[in-house]
Computed example of a mutant assay.
Amino acid sequence: MKPIHTYWVDQEGSPVSCVEKLRVLRENEDEIRQVLQDAFEDGVLMGVTPEGMRRSFEAMLNDLKDPTHKG
């Protein structure tokens, strides 16, 4: 099953329509989904609870830095 892609919007809330930007965003999304799925499966197979893996991923997302924000 092919994953459903995110509906991307810009800073003003308008849909991103540039074909090249959408291609890169979708490729990144596909890669991230696969890496997350692989890491999730590894963790669960090594005995970590699914909830624990999800909490770990959420913590990583919360630590992401906005490259446009200085400070």
Rank of each mutant, 00 (worst) to 15 (best):
E27N: 10
E31L: 14
R54C: 05
L25Q: 08
V19M: 06
M1R: 10
T6E: 14
K70A: 15
Q11R: 15
E51N: 03
L25S: 03
H5F: 15
V9L: 14
S56M: 09
G13S: 04
M53R: 06
G52N: 09
F57K: 03
P50F: 03
Y7D: 15
K21I: 06
Q11N: 11
E58P: 00
P3R: 03
M53T: 03
E12H: 01
G47H: 03
V44R: 12
S56T: 15
R26I: 05
N62Y: 04
A59L: 10
G52Y: 06
S17G: 00
V19F: 11
N28E: 09
D63F: 04
E41H: 09
S14D: 10
L61F: 14
R26A: 05
V9P: 00
F57G: 00
S17W: 01
E58Y: 02
T49D: 08
T49W: 01
K65R: 15
D42C: 07
L36H: 02
P15S: 03
T6D: 06
R55A: 12
Y7A: 11
I4S: 10
M1K: 08
N28C: 12
K70G: 12
K70E: 15
E20S: 11
M53I: 11
P67K: 02
H69P: 00
V24E: 08
E51G: 03
S56E: 12
I32Q: 07
G47K: 01
D30F: 00
L45C: 04
E58G: 00
K65F: 04
K65W: 06
R54Y: 05
N62Q: 13
K65Q: 15
V9E: 11
E12A: 08
D30E: 14
V16L: 12
L36F: 11
D42T: 09
A59D: 09
T49L: 08
D30Q: 07
V16S: 02
E20L: 10
T49R: 11
Q37C: 08
